[in-house]
Design a binder for these strands. Structure first.
Lengths: 206, 206
DNA sequence: TTTGAATTGTGAAAATAATCACAATGTGAA
DNA sequence: TTCACATTGTGATTATTTTCACAATTCAAA
């Protein structure tokens, strides 16, 4: 498998989403310039990226929206169906439950976990909440590979270590803690404060 | 102002946070290797980054935690106090209100806005919620430059255009919509689904 | 059929970022 | 004082990413 830059992956995911939207609007063809405008990246970068995934358009009609969408999806090898769990059903966790399952039919949050007894056995946005104590068994029995962590920072490292031990090797980490985990675990840190600080930097400083 | 790569800024923000934590633990000195381990970046990159901000440690004692923290803060020129508003008081908006104001004393969310009359005039996590109709005036009167958008995707573009027109030039966009705005507006897109898709890619695809 | 306009695909160049390797520095022990 | 050690700071190198520039392609219209 040829190695593709992380930035390229980011952009492909954005293209894919925009293509999905075009598809919904029954747009059948799109030019690199249009895709560039929609995604916010320059058009030559769009073309370069599409080269990487191996899709070829035509100079006359640009790219076929449905084919390209399919092609990027295949490339990202979003498999038929990925099952994900969410740990920590606070405000943020519930927001994610609400949001995620309406966005991508191929990636589903299939269970939630929390330590609060008032939340356990409840259903939030269609997802059943189990007690955190059962998470390791759940991961093993259902062969879960990806988890979203939205617990308080103080608990993040402990839980992360446990789920990795049980077989998880991809984590979306919404806590402000930098998790210390084996190198083969892919961690995507989505600390919201970081995004805000960056904006403040580029607005005031730069 | 010399131009610093966005990636460097990202890392600096992470260092700053880890330094803050060390400071709390009364650690007075830190070596690049330690900072590397905490932040997850290689140590030579840490040293290179610190070169960029112009802080110099000593081979014997590494870096002084308090000085370095101060130096990075100054470099990021997080000014004395930045006032930010949040638009859209749903699950996600409330989670952010809860989370942000306890993280960085120099950046505060000072007001929230929503169109739902049941939320207007309420206080969530200490922040007063105004009706969305008043947001343009509020921005002008209080000279707001940065906003967090957590409204439904369908409303995002309209609101973004309005607030930019009123003077905002930095946006943290939590909606899945790619906002079309003038080039001088800095936009940080934090689409949560994107993070999840990325993890799925790197876990399953390789 | 030929021309013209728009767009793609891509080699090559430029710009940017990350890594390496090591001299310089300071410290503590002998 | 001298030596050994660990660490910093940085020039040089390597690798990666982005941009440029233009030939090749396709179609519609004359």
């Amino acid at each position: 498998m040829k190695s593709i830059a992380e930035n390229t992956i980011n952009r492909l995911i954005v293209y894919k989403k925009e293509l999905g939207r075009l598809l919904k609007d029954s747009v059948s063809n799109v030019y690199s310039h249009k895709l560039a405008q929609l995604s916010g990246f320059p058009s030559h970068l769009v073309r370069r990226d599409l080269m990487n995934v191996g899709y070829y358009g035509s100079p006359a009609h640009g790219y076929k929206v449905n084919e390209l969408e399919k092609c990027i999806s295949d490339f990202l090898c979003t498999p038929d169906y990925v099952r994900v769990i969410l740990i920590g059903v606070g405000n943020l966790g519930r927001a994610i439950l609400d949001y995620c399952n309406q966005q991508n039919p191929k990636i589903s949050i299939i269970a939630a976990f929390d330590s609060d007894k008032n939340k356990v056995n409840k259903i939030y946005h269609g997802i059943y909440t189990f007690h955190i104590g059962s998470v390791q068994n759940y991961i093993k029995e259902n062969d879960i590979k990806v988890a979203i962590i939205t617990v308080p920072g103080s608990e993040a490292q402990k839980i992360a270590s446990e789920i990795v031990e049980s077989g998880v090797n991809g984590i979306v980490n919404f806590t402000p803690v930098r998790l210390q985990l084996p190198d083969d675990v892919y961690i995507e840190n989505l600390d919201m404060m970081l995004g805000l600080e960056k904006v403040v930097y580029f607005v005031d400083g730069g």
